[in-house]
């Protein structure tokens, strides 16, 4: 079954960047609940506050949302806040490497939304 290929399941069972940073610049406690998935992030910025130095996520989710969070947190580490704000769904699909139905696409996009919303609240 294509969706649950080993690559996705490995990220699901052993997600990268899972946990809670001890000294974050951004602590999005609220998280972003969607249909039983709930993901929240803590972010440490670089000293000039322009880039993501470290990012952790925690919460519960399906294989797709957890794998997406794992891959995406890897991807945004070291990236400019501005460029992260520009990320679109295509990037998430590319990282996951699977085709998704509209419903499951929402699961896959939840981590991106969560990251962008928490960065946005920081920018404001």
């Amino acid at each position: 079954m294509d969706l649950y290929r080993d690559f996705i399941l490995t990220h699901y069972h052993h997600p990268h960047n899972f946990g809670h940073l001890s000294d974050p610049d951004i602590d999005d406690k609220k998280g972003n609940p969607f249909c039983g998935d709930q993901i929240s992030v803590t972010i440490k910025l670089t000293s000039n506050k322009k880039k993501v130095e470290k990012i952790n996520f925690e919460g519960t989710g399906c294989a797709i949302s957890i794998a997406s969070a794992s891959l995406l947190t890897d991807y945004v580490t070291g990236k400019d806040i501005i460029s992260i704000m520009d990320l679109k769904k295509e990037k998430v699909i590319e990282l996951l490497g699977i085709t998704l139905s509209p419903t499951r696409l929402k699961c896959a996009l939840l981590p991106l939304e969560t990251i962008q919303v928490s960065l946005l609240s920081h920018l404001r």
């Binding site: 969706l3 649950y4 039983g36 519960t60 989710g61 399906c62 797709i64 499951r104 699961c107």
Partner: peptide, 12 residues
């Protein structure tokens, strides 16, 4: 197992 994943696998 998250409910979405179970439902998706059953759907196959």
């Amino acid at each position: 197992i998250h409910p979405h994943d179970l439902a998706q696998i059953l759907d196959t």
